[in-house]
């Protein structure tokens, strides 16, 4: 294996608003290999979606990428001219969004929206061929009678079906990397399960790398190979799914895991992390989590660096929970 599909190094994306600078992504690094699935976990406002948009080159003013590199198949795509970035987008890189009710254009038919995605990258393909490809992809994601459905408008689909259409659209040009931004959050649990299963299968079959952005650890547990936990724009813990979920070392990850209902003994109140995510506008110096952390001490007022407590694990904490981690 040569280069990983995607290598993100020290990515920094900030929004320059009137109220101040919001450092939404502040020195994030990770990588995803062919056919691998990375779970990017965090609460809302932790910078996970902005990370996704940064990779896609879809950060709009007043936001911009301030630093770091995004190596896609070995090539840095930060600051790539728009025509070249556009050629990658939807072709080699694809993205699926959270709310399937909003991602499809309400006044255009599904065929229009799918065919244009093909022709944007392959102008030489005829309409009939593009339509055939759209139909096949719809079938692939489990949409019955795709020929008929192509002629429908988005509002004629249910939420789950719309998300399948969006996924099919993302798959049209057989991308090498798909960024899925909470694509199942808005769906029913059963439909969520089906979609997760199908996406996982597709990623394995085609060798597509997948970044799955979510706040739901149970989704990550069943889907991903690796996991990155983000807090206030930074990666606080990283490692393989089994390691991180079984033996969290960062107090935040541990808190997240403890607040999952099934982790709590029946009949007792849910345990939760005290406090709220800090506003990125007024981030205190030092560890952003320290005011909610029971392990915090005076040293936490300075910013912790990434450490590697055991091989394959990276954690950003002065007081990692190492007692339970097998060496």
């Amino acid at each position: 294996m040569s280069d990983p599909t995607l290598l993100v190094e020290d990515l920094r994306t900030a929004f320059y608003t009137k109220a101040g600078v919001i450092r939404a992504v502040d020195g994030v690094s990770f990588q995803v290999g062919r056919g691998k699935i990375l779970g990017l976990v965090g609460e809302s406002g932790s910078g996970k979606s902005v990370t996704g948009f940064s990779i896609m080159g879809l950060v709009d003013p007043p936001g911009r990428i301030d630093g770091g590199r995004i190596l896609f198949q070995g090539r840095n795509i930060v600051g790539l001219p728009e025509p070249e970035m556009r050629a990658l987008r939807g072709s080699r890189l694809a993205m699926i969004f959270q709310d399937p009710m909003m991602t499809l254009n309400p006044v255009l038919r599904i065929d229009t929206q799918m065919i244009e995605a093909v022709k944007a990258h392959h102008p030489e393909v005829s309409d009939a061929e593009a339509r055939a490809r759209a139909r096949d992809t719809l079938g692939q994601v489990g949409i019955p009678s795709p020929d008929e459905r192509l002629k429908s408008y988005p509002h004629q689909f249910s939420g789950g079906m719309r998300q399948r259409v969006a996924i099919a659209t993302a798959l049209l040009n057989k991308p090498d990397l798909i960024i899925a931004d909470e694509p199942t959050t808005a769906l029913d649990v059963t439909i969520q399960g089906q979609i997760l299963f199908e996406v996982q299968k597709l990623a394995r079959q085609t060798g597509t790398a997948l970044i799955w952005i979510t706040h739901d650890l149970s989704v990550v547990a069943s889907l991903a190979d690796e996991v990155c936990v983000m807090y206030a724009g930074r990666v606080v813990e990283q490692g393989s799914v089994d390691d991180v979920l079984d033996h969290p070392t960062h107090p935040y990850t541990e808190g997240l895991l403890r607040s999952v209902p099934s982790a709590n003994p029946r009949g007792q109140p849910l345990r939760q992390i005290p406090g709220m995510t800090p506003s990125l506008l007024r981030l205190p110096p030092g560890c952003a989590f320290r005011q909610r952390c029971e392990r915090a001490s005076a040293v936490c007022a300075t910013a912790p660096e990434i450490t590697v407590p055991v091989p394959g694990r990276r954690v950003r904490c002065f007081h990692p929970i190492l007692a339970t981690v097998p060496a």
Partner: peptide, 15 residues
């Protein structure tokens, strides 16, 4: 604003 722990909040909350 982050909700801070009571004892800490008194000294560190910006005015």
């Amino acid at each position: 604003m982050a909700t801070v722990l009571p004892h800490e909040g008194v000294e560190s909350a910006p005015v």
